[in-house]
Amino acid sequence: MGKGSFKINGLAGLSKKLKKNASMDDVKTIVKTNTAELTAEMQRESQIVLTGHWEGKKFVKPTGATKRSITMHMSNNGFAGHSGPKTEYAPYLIRGTRYMVKRDFFLPPLRKQKQKFRSDLERLMQ
Protein backbone atom coordinates (compact mmCIF):
# COMPACT_ATOMS: atom_id res chain seq x y z
CA MET A 1 0.00 0.00 0.00
CA GLY A 2 1.44 3.39 -0.98
CA LYS A 3 2.18 6.41 1.12
CA GLY A 4 -0.83 8.50 2.03
CA SER A 5 -3.31 5.66 1.74
CA PHE A 6 -5.39 4.11 4.46
CA LYS A 7 -6.62 0.60 5.08
CA ILE A 8 -9.51 -0.72 7.11
CA ASN A 9 -8.52 -3.84 9.00
CA GLY A 10 -10.91 -6.54 10.13
CA LEU A 11 -12.46 -7.22 6.76
CA ALA A 12 -13.46 -10.74 7.81
CA GLY A 13 -15.84 -9.44 10.48
CA LEU A 14 -17.06 -6.70 8.18
CA SER A 15 -17.65 -9.18 5.38
CA LYS A 16 -19.61 -11.52 7.67
CA LYS A 17 -21.84 -8.70 8.90
CA LEU A 18 -22.35 -7.33 5.39
CA LYS A 19 -23.35 -10.73 4.00
CA LYS A 20 -26.27 -10.76 6.41
CA ASN A 21 -27.43 -7.20 5.72
CA ALA A 22 -26.42 -6.23 2.18
CA SER A 23 -25.03 -7.53 -1.06
CA MET A 24 -21.37 -7.21 -1.92
CA ASP A 25 -22.36 -5.10 -4.94
CA ASP A 26 -23.51 -2.42 -2.48
CA VAL A 27 -20.03 -2.42 -0.94
CA LYS A 28 -18.41 -2.10 -4.36
CA THR A 29 -20.69 0.84 -5.13
CA ILE A 30 -19.73 2.58 -1.90
CA VAL A 31 -16.02 2.03 -2.55
CA LYS A 32 -16.28 3.31 -6.12
CA THR A 33 -18.39 6.34 -5.17
CA ASN A 34 -16.11 7.35 -2.30
CA THR A 35 -12.97 6.91 -4.42
CA ALA A 36 -14.47 9.10 -7.15
CA GLU A 37 -15.48 11.75 -4.61
CA LEU A 38 -12.00 11.69 -3.07
CA THR A 39 -10.38 12.10 -6.48
CA ALA A 40 -12.62 15.05 -7.37
CA GLU A 41 -12.03 16.72 -3.99
CA MET A 42 -8.24 16.34 -4.29
CA GLN A 43 -8.35 17.90 -7.75
CA ARG A 44 -10.50 20.76 -6.44
CA GLU A 45 -8.20 21.30 -3.44
CA SER A 46 -5.10 21.30 -5.65
CA GLN A 47 -6.58 24.18 -7.66
CA ILE A 48 -7.07 26.17 -4.45
CA VAL A 49 -3.71 25.40 -2.82
CA LEU A 50 -1.35 25.38 -5.80
CA THR A 51 -1.46 28.99 -6.95
CA GLY A 52 2.01 29.42 -8.42
CA HIS A 53 5.39 30.43 -7.05
CA TRP A 54 8.20 32.93 -7.35
CA GLU A 55 11.48 32.08 -9.07
CA GLY A 56 13.70 35.01 -8.23
CA LYS A 57 11.76 38.10 -9.25
CA LYS A 58 9.52 36.29 -11.72
CA PHE A 59 6.14 34.75 -10.78
CA VAL A 60 5.49 31.35 -12.37
CA LYS A 61 1.83 30.44 -12.91
CA PRO A 62 0.70 26.87 -12.15
CA THR A 63 0.49 24.52 -15.13
CA GLY A 64 -2.19 22.19 -13.75
CA ALA A 65 -0.02 19.09 -14.19
CA THR A 66 -0.58 17.97 -10.60
CA LYS A 67 -4.37 18.31 -10.92
CA ARG A 68 -4.35 16.30 -14.14
CA SER A 69 -2.18 13.62 -12.54
CA ILE A 70 -4.67 12.94 -9.73
CA THR A 71 -6.51 9.86 -10.94
CA MET A 72 -8.44 6.97 -9.48
CA HIS A 73 -7.86 3.25 -9.95
CA MET A 74 -10.04 0.38 -8.79
CA SER A 75 -8.54 -2.99 -7.84
CA ASN A 76 -9.28 -6.17 -5.90
CA ASN A 77 -12.38 -6.83 -8.00
CA GLY A 78 -13.87 -3.44 -7.06
CA PHE A 79 -13.27 -3.72 -3.32
CA ALA A 80 -10.26 -1.35 -3.29
CA GLY A 81 -9.96 2.14 -4.68
CA HIS A 82 -6.75 4.13 -5.09
CA SER A 83 -6.51 7.85 -5.71
CA GLY A 84 -3.64 10.32 -5.67
CA PRO A 85 -1.20 12.41 -7.67
CA LYS A 86 1.21 10.70 -10.06
CA THR A 87 3.73 13.50 -10.58
CA GLU A 88 7.13 12.71 -9.11
CA TYR A 89 7.33 16.05 -7.29
CA ALA A 90 3.93 15.72 -5.56
CA PRO A 91 5.42 14.58 -2.21
CA TYR A 92 7.44 17.82 -2.08
CA LEU A 93 4.27 19.86 -2.62
CA ILE A 94 2.37 17.92 0.05
CA ARG A 95 5.07 17.85 2.73
CA GLY A 96 7.14 20.90 1.77
CA THR A 97 10.90 21.26 1.87
CA ARG A 98 13.27 23.40 3.85
CA TYR A 99 12.94 26.03 1.10
CA MET A 100 9.21 25.67 0.41
CA VAL A 101 6.15 25.64 2.66
CA LYS A 102 3.85 22.65 2.35
CA ARG A 103 0.83 22.94 0.11
CA ASP A 104 -1.19 19.98 1.29
CA PHE A 105 -3.99 19.15 -1.11
CA PHE A 106 -3.93 15.47 -0.14
CA LEU A 107 -4.65 14.96 3.58
CA PRO A 108 -7.59 17.37 4.19
CA PRO A 109 -9.80 15.72 1.51
CA LEU A 110 -8.63 12.27 2.66
CA ARG A 111 -9.66 12.95 6.26
CA LYS A 112 -13.11 14.18 5.22
CA GLN A 113 -13.70 11.30 2.83
CA LYS A 114 -12.51 8.72 5.36
CA GLN A 115 -15.26 9.80 7.77
CA LYS A 116 -17.88 9.68 5.01
CA PHE A 117 -16.68 6.25 3.89
CA ARG A 118 -16.95 4.84 7.41
CA SER A 119 -20.43 6.29 7.88
CA ASP A 120 -21.56 4.85 4.52
CA LEU A 121 -20.33 1.38 5.52
CA GLU A 122 -21.92 1.65 8.97
CA ARG A 123 -25.23 2.71 7.38
CA LEU A 124 -25.01 -0.33 5.10
CA MET A 125 -24.45 -2.68 8.05
CA GLN A 126 -27.54 -1.49 9.96
Rank of each mutant, 00 (worst) to 15 (best):
V31I: 15
N21T: 15
L93W: 07
Q115M: 00
V101C: 03
V49R: 08
P91I: 02
L18V: 15
L14M: 15
V60P: 14
T87M: 06
D120R: 05
P85Q: 07
S83G: 05
H73G: 10
L110N: 00
K16Y: 13
D26M: 01
N9D: 11
A12F: 13
E55Y: 02
N21P: 08
F117N: 01
M42Q: 15
S69H: 04
K57P: 00
S75N: 14
M42L: 04
R111I: 12
L110V: 10
V60M: 11
K57V: 03
G78T: 12
G78F: 12
V49T: 13
M74L: 14
K20N: 09
T71G: 09
H82K: 11
A22G: 04
D25W: 00
K102F: 10
G56H: 10
R44T: 08
A22R: 09
A22C: 05
F105T: 00
R118N: 09
E88Y: 09
I30H: 05
E88F: 11
R68Q: 15
M24E: 14
K116S: 08
Q43N: 14
W54M: 15
T33G: 05
R68E: 13
P108C: 05
F6C: 02
N9W: 04
K28H: 06
R103P: 06
N9V: 07
D120M: 03
N21F: 05
A12S: 14
G13E: 12
S83M: 04
K58I: 10
S83N: 06
